[in-house]
Simulated assay, not measured.
Amino acid sequence: MSVILELTRQITAEVIAPAAAAVDAERRYPKESMQALGKAGLFGLLVPKELGGLGGNLADLSAVTETIAAACGSTAMCFLMHNCATAVVAAKATPEQQERYLRPIARGEKLGTLAFSETGTGAHFYAPEIKAEPEAGQFVLNGKKSFVTNGDEADFVIVIANASSPGLGTDMFIVDTDAPGLRFDGVWDGIGLSGNNSIALFLERVKVSAGQLVGAEGDGMGLVFQVVAPTFILGVAGVNAGIARGAYETALRHAQTRKYADGRGLAELQAIQFYLSDMFGGVESASLFVSNAAAKAVRGDADAILHVMQSKVQASEQAIRVTNIAMQVCGGQGYTKALPTERYLRDARAGAVMAPTTEVLKEWIGKSVAGVPLF
């Protein structure tokens, strides 16, 4: 076991798991859990060691998100989106950006997130409608972003916008959340991942300097597909594998401890044994597929992208399947909040509709294996 994973398991057992039920029931941001992760240095998971971080890779990220999500899906998503923002900064950070963002992130002092989704773009998060308008040597951002995980708890957001110069494509900017004209609004009212604070972001003549541009003008699309996509997809695949694992372990404990009046145990029933077998296979197939895809991405294998995309499909579909079976095993108690089964069931539904959705990924994968152009 790596030091990173051992540390994650310790924090999950001591802080994240005990708070998970309250985070869900009260629909509150998992502040204590996130603070514990930051204090332990895990905010700097993807920050290079020479800047004070852990120097982790995508295999570490997917393993960490799986571990956290087995206890609390909300915390896992908040942590993942912070790491996606960190990965963007780290990819092309200037010396000033290293000092202003990456070193504080490694110390657990800054929390980031992505601001990509827009109402009009749907699953095509890489094609924003808002534009960076040049003005007196700066850029001005106007518009609305949706589903900004971490929301007003974040210290900075990575905003994707159409480049100011025609034909350049898209840009990414690091925008501090205390910038004049930036505000958050709304509450997260989704059926699951209740504590992830995914709310709307409004940009009203927000001015950003050239020093807040990530890379050069027009680098946005490259960052989306080379940095954000693999980081998010493998991370959220880990989240869904973790949700499936948490549901399976809950159902297994219930089956082992539930006794009937005649002394028989629930686990002694053949139907329950079949269910346990199905869940075990589903969890392990998802987890192993994700870890294999992450290893391929780290090595730079030629077929890594196909496995990365399929990892989200595999994990999302297994999360839905396993949590449904867990409900059958846990019966009436699983349908109530006496067990976390219903929470895992609700949390599992999110993975399939997060962009890129299962359907979009299947289209891309199908085209890729058939040699058909993606676009």
Rank of each mutant, 00 (worst) to 15 (best):
Ile11Leu: 15
Asn196Cys: 15
Met77Arg: 09
Gly169Ser: 07
Ala229Asp: 13
Leu51Gln: 08
Gly192Met: 11
Glu268Val: 03
Val88Trp: 10
Glu135Ile: 08
Gly73Ala: 15
Leu42Asp: 08
Thr357Ser: 14
Met354Asn: 13
Gly331Pro: 03
Val369Glu: 11
Lys367Pro: 02
Gln226Lys: 15
Asp176Asn: 15
Val159Arg: 12
Trp364Pro: 00
Lys110Met: 15
Glu153Asn: 14
Ala93Met: 11
Gly52Ile: 05
Gly195Arg: 07
Met309Gln: 06
Gly120Ala: 13
Leu51Phe: 14
Leu5Glu: 05
Asn196Trp: 02
Gly137Lys: 03
Glu284Val: 08
Ala70Tyr: 02
Ala91Met: 11
Tyr260Glu: 06
Arg321Trp: 07
Tyr101Thr: 12
Phe79Gly: 11
Val227Met: 04
Pro166Glu: 10
Val308Arg: 00
Ala267Lys: 12
Gln10Trp: 08
Asp178Lys: 12
Ala93Leu: 07
Ala63Asp: 00
Pro356Asp: 07
Leu114Thr: 13
Leu276Glu: 05
Leu288Gly: 02
Lys312Ile: 02
Lys144His: 11
Thr119Cys: 08
Ser62Pro: 01
Gly351Leu: 03
Thr8Ser: 13
Thr336Met: 05
Thr119Gly: 14
Ser165Cys: 04
Ser198Lys: 06
Leu102Arg: 02
Met354Arg: 10
Ser33Trp: 04
Glu359Ala: 14
Asn83Asp: 10
Asn292Cys: 01
Phe280Cys: 06
Ile68Leu: 07
Gly44Trp: 01
Val224Arg: 07
Gln333Cys: 09
Gly351Asn: 07
Gly334Trp: 02
Asn324Cys: 07
Ala40Asp: 06
Ser62Cys: 07
Thr86Pro: 07
Phe156Gly: 07
Ala302Gln: 10
Pro95Arg: 07
His254Gln: 08
Phe232Lys: 15
Asp301Lys: 01
Phe116Asp: 09
Ala40Glu: 03
Ser146Gly: 09
Gly220Gln: 06
Thr170Glu: 08
Leu213Ser: 11
Asp303Tyr: 06
Thr336Pro: 01
Tyr260Cys: 02
Leu266Phe: 05
Ser287Cys: 01
Leu266His: 06
Gln333Asn: 12
Pro48Val: 06
Ile174Lys: 10
Glu153Pro: 01
Gln314Leu: 01
Lys49Gly: 14
Gly41His: 03
Asp278Glu: 15
Ala251Thr: 04
Thr94Pro: 11
Cys72Tyr: 01
Arg183Thr: 15
